[in-house]
Amino acid sequence: MTPTATIVADRLTRRFGSFTAVNAISFEVRRGEIFGFLGANGAGKTTAIKMMSGLLMPTEGTAMVGGFDVSTEAEQVKRSIGYMSQRFSLYADLTVRENIRFYGGIYGLKKAVLNERAEHLIRDLGLDAEADRLVGELPLGMKQKLAFSTALVHDPAVVFLDEPTSGVDPITRRQFWEMITAAADRGTTILITTHYLDEAEYCHRISVMVDGTMAAYDTPSAVKSTLGVHTMDEVFLKLTRTSP
């Protein structure tokens, strides 16, 4: 384990009955790294993320997240991660400010700290005028950006982003990635799954899961050159087509 690794998975395995969803995957993600977690639907991405976020117990193997073991220290793991899912996760009937305070609140932030962070966050997103409007009235792109900022409100060591950009227009997608890069530069480790293969190029390193195993694990350019292809699309097709 390298000293700067925030996520270390070691032969992480999860079986459901006779079906092996995740088969002994091992990888490390460094502090401040943007790690792309790619794979077709049903390849085991979600199961792997669930294990790393303390929602699902590994059948075998271990994973350390933010220095805590997911099998034995799920509580501490949960405190050190943020999570944003593809499904919209803010409450439409609460205002921008109320949403931020709620999510900060359930992580046990003190009121003074929470207030300061909430105002800071609202300013950063340029939402001063909308702070007391219901989230349901905001455009989708703004909701997604707000959801991302909210996932970071308790300053987690690691953020899991599960297809955060699905259904978002290209311009917002671009801005979204700027936010992700900025968070990584501040030292937050990012693990992101995506269906947009061009987004994989923005990641520092990627892994491609095929049938519960890791078929590739390197920087985007290294993965491409190893397979002798030029685009991420080709990488994806080449790897997934080999599976029956």
Partner: peptide, 13 residues
């Protein structure tokens, strides 16, 4: 249904 439960379950609650 709205996907908020995931977030709540991932949180330390």
């Amino acid at each position: 249904e709205l996907g908020n439960m995931e977030i709540l379950l991932v949180s330390p609650l």
